[in-house]
Nucleic acid binder design. Structure first.
Length: 457
RNA sequence: UCCCCAUUAGCUCAGUCGGUAGAGCAGGUGACUGUUAAUCACCUUGUCCGUGGUUCGAGUCCGCGAAGGGGAGCCA
């Protein structure tokens, strides 16, 4: 039985068997205490071993990290600290962890733990983190399932860099030492796919195609960017959630984003209580209060033009100057959501020059139907738009931005027969986790982070 | 990619004015105890990131390099 279940619903006097890894051994002459953890919850179960047990001499020498199976009787604990403990009748040692086990019974730095990413899931912080991550992944699928959204697996290998969203990782089977060439250029027609391919930077374009068949869809999958970004917020491989709705405009898009974000805040507070308390006390003491506030609030909406007015009126000095037409920096976003709105804020209708080609042109001719959801402490967390469904305007915009129609003929086809208004947004899964746990480095919210120069494990 | 900070024991760090390195934890031994990252006593552990230089002498000062962290840009 899992330790979480026993601690929650175990009954005193009954027999239970658990398996897990040793967190701590405290040995005395007549009795030894083992804290055993199996990953099912933050805390472990206290195992009490009497010195009369034949394996007692081995047990008191067990190192942190050893793997055990224990069978015994659940009894009410006479000491404070835990309600129940397991009085061991038998202890089976799978493997005693030697003293060179890198995790000690003390606090380690995140930097150090990254160098032992294969072992860090056995720590309190990463145990809590990956339980929350798993819960959120399932909650996301649930949210969309409850609303009849189709889950679509868009391709990971792609031939198009859809929005120029970043450098593509190349996928090839060509001999790198001596690739076939034509006129000096690498001849990708000889490659596996008979063309140049890479790893996807977004599933959105394919998602749109499915929205135009199933009405409401979402993707939730890995995404890759070969940018040389060395920051706490960027990874070369990350997971992204991208819903897309047919017959929806920007307002409907923002409404979905709000419902979605508040749903996840609520669920994680309601159902990851123990782990969230841990983050609240160890990472960020304002965490639960902040998330609760978001879960209960109605998000405000502000036009980009109004945002610029507000920023220019601000008494705070900004590093980056503000004028109509510039993209908002993190400092601007935080000012708007923290000082002006004091809560989550949608900024909508951005200048077309700073946004992607597929965003729908507004009637004013200079803005597009884009929206960013800004939240306190972070800034932008969701970005979305209504898509340009009018074929002529879309092609015109692509021409202006120098995007070739050739590789996107299938995307343009979606605007030829039965095109309709549609909208969607993207949410970086790791950034969501960072927001909800207070963890400050993206490398610490993904099991085995891939960043420039790092693909270990 | 740019700017800044740091790299010393297994881990977290201190190291004064340039004079051959120290603490806590971990580990070992023992004691003690229904313990709670147990406690107490004693003990072990070093390519001071690498490299070149200045100097009688470099963990300490200077150059180069490497890897790390933070911030920025780009973004999710």
């Amino acid at each position: 039985m899992r330790i979480k279940q026993i601690l929650a619903q175990g009954r005193g006097g009954e027999e239970y068997a658990v398996s897990g890894w040793v967190r701590s051994v405290r040995a005395g002459k007549g009795v030894a205490f083992i804290v055993l953890n199996d990953g099912s919850c933050l805390g472990g179960i206290q195992i009490v071993v009497d010195s009369l047990l034949p394996s007692f001499p081995q047990i008191v020498r067990l190192g942190t990290g050893s793997s055990l199976a224990v069978a015994g009787t659940l009894v009410e604990s006479p000491a404070t600290g835990q309600r129940f403990e397991l009085a061991a009748a038998s202890v089976t040692i799978y493997q005693d962890a030697a003293l060179d086990y890198p995790l000690q019974k003390k606090r380690h730095s995140f930097e150090y733990l990254r160098t032992i990413a294969h072992l860090r899931p056995r720590t309190n912080t990463f145990g809590a983190l990956f339980r929350v991550r798993s819960f959120l992944a399932q909650a996301i699928h649930q949210f969309f399932a409850e609303r009849d959204f189709l889950c679509v697996h868009t391709p990971i290998i792609t031939a198009n860099d859809c929005e120029g969203a970043g450098e593509l990782f190349r996928v090839t089977t060509l001999d790198l030492a001596a690739p076939p060439r034509i006129k000096g250029e690498v001849d990708f027609s000889a490659d596996f796919f008979s063309r140049s391919t890479g790893l996807t930077v977004s599933g959105q374009l394919e998602g749109e195609l499915f929205a135009l068949a199933f009405s409401d869809i979402y993707t939730f999958g890995p995404t890759f960017r070969a940018e040389n970004s060395n920051t706490s917020r960027h990874a070369a491989e990350f997971w992204m959630i991208e819903p897309e709705m047919a017959f929806a405009d920007l307002a409907a898009d923002a409404a979905l984003a709000e419902e979605f974000f508040r749903y996840l805040c609520r669920r994680v507070l309601d159902e990851c209580g123990e782990d969230m308390e841990f983050f609240n006390s160890h990472m960020d003491t304002g965490l639960i209060q902040r998330i609760r506030k978001v879960a209960d609030s109605t998000f405000q909406v502000m036009e980009y033009g109004e945002a610029i007015v507000q920023l220019r009126r601000a008494k705070v000095p900004f590093v980056y100057p503000v004028a109509w037409g510039v993209d908002l920096q993190t400092e601007h976003e935080r000012y708007l959501t923290e000082q002006v709105a004091d809560g989550p804020l949608f900024v909508i209708n951005y200048p077309r020059e700073i946004k992607a080609f597929y965003m729908r042109g507004n009637d004013d001719g200079r803005t597009v139907a884009a929206m960013d959801l800004l939240v306190p402490k972070v800034g932008e967390i969701i970005g979305g738009s209504q898509r340009e469904e009018r074929s002529d305007l879309l092609r015109q915009r692509m021409a202006e931005m120098g995007i070739s129609e050739e590789g996107l003929w299938w995307y343009l086809d979606s605007r030829r027969w039965g095109s309709c208004p549609h909208a969607g947004f993207g949410l970086g899964f790791e950034r969501l986790i960072m927001y909800l746990t207070g963890m400050e480095n993206i490398r610490d919210v993904i099991p085995f982070p891939r960043t420039p120069r790092h693909a270990e494990f």
